[in-house]
Amino acid sequence: MKRRSFLRSEAGHGLLMLSPTALYATIVMAAPLVAVFVFSFMTPGYLKVVWTFTLNNYAKVFSSPIYTALLGRSLLTSGVVTAVTVLTAFPIAYFISFYVSPARKSLWLFLITIPFWTSYLIRVFLWKVILGYNGVINSAFLGLGIIHEPMTFLLYNMNSVVITLAHSYAPFAILPIFVALEKIDRSLLEAGQDLGESRFMTFIRVTLPLAMSGVVASVLIVFIPTAGDYVTPTLVGGANGQMIANVIQLQYFKLGDYPMGSAVSITAMAVVTAVALIFVFLNRRFLRGPK
């Protein structure tokens, strides 16, 4: 066989072609992440790092109640956000996939994606306007005489964080489920009913398992970024709605404590990744179970 140099081969061409993008991601993302990992084991100094190895930062993260509490609240909040978002998104994806005529599907998807692309900050701020003490809901309800004094549980707590994040991540949850539903061969569903299952049982036994890959993707794509969201807890979270990103920002920006901020970041990422992996694993087990 003749030998060709690797760069002239198909594989070589492909790698070469991908290399600018891959290199960029390596330098701007992967390498800094590694640096953060290394920093998290170093000794803090204001706005710089002292190069002596220590586990102190991690010890602080796990011993001080503020970090664990914030981490717990972040996980809880994004867990609730994920559940709410995915559960409310599923019927929409189902509706678009099964009830909207093919010609109008793109229009629906477009309508759903538009809000996502419009100024994120202002959108979050507007929830403050909607949910606030003098907000749209309170003034409307007061005006209609449904309530007699403004509701205070709407804003500056986990409720408002959940509502705002669910709103922000709606298209992220809808699209993967929609794609999975679109891939289902419609004759399978007819086969299910043909074999004597009711509509509902066909949904449970055929549609849902087949759509599960999309649901898993939705869950991950909502859960992971929301756990690290900064803007929403800052603007609508109040004191009781703060999340882990706030403390990371505090460490880096206000305190200039890079190693500590790094340790919090790494811990948060590790915990979120672990939760995500556990979810994926459980889901696999569950899906394989009934078969």
Partner: peptide, 12 residues
């Protein structure tokens, strides 16, 4: 990846 992670890692 949460944007804040990207932001801080690049920052440091």
């Amino acid at each position: 990846l949460p944007d804040i992670i990207i932001a801080v890692s690049l920052l440091v």
